[in-house]
Design a protein around this nucleic acid. Structure first.
Lengths: 316, 316
DNA sequence: CTGGCTACATAACTTGGCGTTATGAAGATT
DNA sequence: AATCTTCATAACGCCAAGTTATGTAGCCAG
């Protein structure tokens, strides 16, 4: 005979609390409801679960045995509601986030670390990619969030993008690079140094081309290409090579004093760093929390950049 | 938020079996029912439990987590139905049985032992008492069964008694008692030997008085009184004392060759050994099984007695 | 690519059980 | 014996889960 797990749970509550009335308000029900359900259960199984005509209520052997099973049901329910609560408040769950390698490694990884400290049970599934890869993934729900430099007009239908940092690139070089020491840099000098190029399909590569075009450098040496941010940084810091990097990335690394930005104003890119998600899929609480965290971090980052930018060293 | 344990169970079934249809027939329900319940649960908790638009069905992280709790509910339910099945078939439970010390120790204890071998999970709560104690206990449900020598007319309302052995007493003595050797025993010789008296409130004491009256012995020596059966037996076997015992008790001990019955016909008591229970309380399955066992054992015992009684030695 | 198969979703309807409040009865307590 | 507490019963509304019938969408084969 199949027993309704709710009945087991109810039986446990009654036995545990020693009475129908107490059991009822543990379960958040009225006493008559519990009384009738109990009576129904007893007739259904054809045996009394409590000694009849006794007060305080005392379970029969069968009643006590089944109540023990009821405890398991009750505890499973408790556990489940706990898990659900943690999930709905975003304290647990998973976030699938992707973005361009340079921003992810240079800026966002630190923010993810801070988030993980606060939310150790939220799993971050991070991956790398550019808009061409990531937008389809967002569209079919394979990804929760993408963090990409986007043009405002280039947002596909169904996706929504929030700008989290204005696009601004700088020419990066090692700290103590010959071009940094001098007050002004002549644009034609830039062509004399080797350049490190980002992967050809990356927005940064596009930006790099624009920069070099704008300063009239058409012929430049590419000494290194396609590496990760950390590779770029180590090449950069060990040579006189130049490259284009988001200002925010150079800014985040200012403490290490490995790299610096040339005091040259270059055209700002028309792409602005944005966080994207698909409106067709409701953001899970954990995703919401994560997104909020990232936005807040960028807010403070933008503030820091503003403040420090007043400084001479950082004004290009 | 409170989750219905049935929903957890259902979720487990679906995840475990990998589909709504399979899950549904595990639960013994139709597929649409499960589908709708699942949809209800998902809207209730506000998050998908399965990846949408995927086949084969794949649970989300939350779905899998909650399904794990569902497994506990499911298993508790399985366990409970198993316990219930064992209970309803009488393979487990308790039996509260009481009776007169002499019958219980002399005849029934062996039967209980045999029952326990077959039903190790049935707990036998055995106690001693006479009708005056036990009938009230039966009446208020403190006892499931009583095994007592009863007059047919003396059954209280609400109780029902089934005779399991006709009343028949013998005069017991040690094996090799001087009175046994001779073919006939003169009644007046009986007064010469010391007598062991059962407790004064016991039916056997009453029978003893009747016997002695019937053989014209009005003045008799009581050498021992009030002991348990084993005490009576050990006194009896170590002396020439006499006492009145149920024939069945002497019969059961025939193998030990400690005691014997005098070849004297004494009046049969008007009480017959009966098994009593209260019709107001439905017999639990375990009690039913036990009662059936006892009745069957007495049936074979009565048969054995009949057969052996043809024998010279046992014909009084 | 286009059927066809299979499995899930939806619709429409019925019903059983659980929720409520009001009130009666029975044990326990003094 | 009176009272208080607690459980049982009654009457009624309603939700959820059950049913069958049918639509629709993934997945696979030809």
């Amino acid at each position: 005979m199949k027993i309704d797990p709710r009945h087991l749970e109810m039986l446990f509550a009654i036995v545990h609390r020693g009475g129908l009335t107490e059991g009822a308000d543990v379960l958040g029900k009225s006493q008559p409801s519990v009384s009738r359900s109990l009576a129904l259960l007893e007739t259904r199984i054809g045996a009394p679960l409590f000694e009849p005509g006794k007060r305080p209520l005392k379970p029969t052997e069968l009643g006590a045995t089944l109540a023990a099973e009821g405890r398991k049901v009750f505890e499973a329910g408790q556990h489940a509601t706990g898990l659900l609560e943690r999930f709905t408040t975003g304290k647990t769950g998973a976030v699938r986030v992707a973005g361009t390698p340079v921003f992810l490694d240079g800026v966002i990884s630190g923010m993810i670390g801070a988030f993980q400290v606060e939310h150790p049970d939220v799993r971050i599934d991070q991956s790398y990619g550019y808009a061409s890869d990531l937008l389809p993934k967002l569209e079919d729900g394979a990804l929760d969030l993408a963090i990409l430099p986007m043009r405002h007009g280039a947002i596909p239908d169904g996706l929504v993008a929030e700008q989290i940092l204005p696009g601004r690139n700088v020419i990066a070089c090692r700290a103590g690079h010959p071009l940094v020491r001098r007050g002004a840099v002549k644009l034609n000098e830039l062509g004399q140094y080797p350049w490190i190029a980002p992967p050809p399909d990356s927005p940064l590569f596009h930006d790099l081309r624009l920069v070099l075009d704008s300063v009239g450098v058409t012929d430049f040496k590419v000494s290194f290409s396609g590496g990760s941010l950390s590779a770029v940084i180590s090449i950069l810091s060990g040579s006189d090579a130049l490259t284009v990097l988001p200002f925010s990335v150079v800014f985040m690394m200012r403490r290490q004093k490995l790299i610096s930005a040339l005091p040259v104003r270059i055209g700002d890119p028309d792409r602005h760093l944005s966080i994207l998600h698909n409106t067709a899929f409701a953001m899970r609480p954990s995703v919401k929390r994560f997104a909020a965290h990232i936005k807040a971090e960028f807010q403070t980052l933008a503030g820091s950049i503003m403040r420090v930018s007043q400084d001479q060293v950082w004004r290009p």
